[in-house]
């Protein structure tokens, strides 16, 4: 090939590069290119044989804002938000009381006391709807997202401080769990939106969601890390997707995990080792954009999913053939 032709081609290539750069600078925005946009089309479809549960009649909740649910040891379901309502096992309303502000999370102790996590404080109510105690926490701007109770302790997750507060039943702070510890090189939990749920394990370990890491972490009462599992994938339904999932967790009596996610609203079951088992509910069962699917489990392994969009508690029973 003669030199003139080579030079002409190369000069044309240089000019083409410059034209591409000018086009990219001035015109590419018009095409709304989103190179980092989460592509969720594939995640909305899933293998129906992986669905292990059937939905039964939901409980319609009559309140303006629904935020959290909890189950007591007699399978009474407590729903909280702008009000707090307790339903019997058959779905009949048993107790209803109002409070000054919206509660984000709820737990019921074995003695029947109802613990509500509010903005910057925790309220303790009797099972007759009487306010017993108010715990003003050390940080008035704390955002309490998850609360669990055992026979001696109350654990509350604070999404603002990115730590789990461990109280005794009288509201005395015992210690803080899952917080940042620079001396051990442990960074803070990554919370990109205010979802930071906790659950109690079978051995009284505290399971804490680290949504930014797409993981669940187990701690003992002293704050010692015991175990961890969870992986991220925007493609494989076996893992947690998006920026920060799961949003909520619960444990079945046999130790299996129930998880719910946002962005792709779905509820899944994982084994005690953190291996994907199947779906409770896929994204097709929820309205688009549904988030805040709080979870509870009763003694019969039924799974209760709070659906804030429809203001329902959706109830799922295990399929007989699964």
């Amino acid at each position: 090939m003669n030199k003139k032709l080579i030079i002409s081609i190369l000069i044309f290539a240089i000019v083409a590069i410059i034209v591409f750069m000018v086009h990219d600078l001035f015109f590419s925005n018009l095409e709304q290119e989103k190179p980092y946009e989460l592509k969720t089309d594939g995640l909305n479809t899933y293998d129906s044989t992986l669905v292990l549960y059937d939905e039964v009649e939901p409980i319609q909740v009559n309140m303006d804002e629904v935020r959290g649910i909890a189950m007591d040891n007699e399978d009474n379901l407590c729903v909280t938000g702008s009000l707090t309502i307790v339903y019997e096992k058959n779905g009949k309303e048993k107790l209803k009381f109002s409070h000054d502000s919206v509660a984000q999370c709820v737990a019921i102790s074995d003695s029947g006391e109802i613990f509500l996590g509010m903005h910057g404080r925790i309220e303790v109510w009797s099972f007759k709807g009487k306010l017993l105690r108010v715990w003003d926490t050390e940080n008035s701007s704390s955002v309490f997202f998850g609360i669990v109770v055992d026979e001696n302790s109350v654990y509350v997750s604070d999404a603002k401080e990115k730590v789990v507060l461990h109280y005794d039943l009288n509201g005395e702070l015992i210690n803080k769990i899952a917080g940042e510890d620079s001396s051990k090189g442990i960074p803070a939990i990554i919370i990109r939106s205010a979802y930071f749920d906790i659950a109690l394990g079978r051995d009284n370990e505290i399971w804490v969601v680290n949504p930014g890491m797409h993981q669940l972490e187990a701690f003992d009462k002293n704050g010692q890390l015991k175990s961890t599992w969870g992986e991220y994938s925007n493609e494989d339904v076996k893992y947690f997707c998006g920026c920060c999932n799961p949003t909520h967790i619960a444990l079945l009596p046999d130790g299996k995990f129930v998880t719910s996610e946002k962005a792709i609203p779905r509820v899944k079951i994982y084994s005690q080792m953190g291996e994907f088992v199947g779906f409770v509910a896929g994204p097709d069962l929820f309205n688009e954009g549904t988030k805040g699917l709080d979870l509870a489990v009763d003694s019969e392994n039924r799974i209760f999913v709070l659906d804030p969009e429809r203001k329902q508690v959706r109830v799922f029973e295990k399929k007989k053939d699964k």
Partner: peptide, 19 residues
């Protein structure tokens, strides 16, 4: 996009020095 541009510059640079 930038990898292609970089590679093109290097390829051109073999014949037209320091484009």
């Amino acid at each position: 996009f930038m990898f292609v541009i970089g590679a093109l510059f290097l390829l051109i640079g073999v014949f037209i020095a320091r484009p």
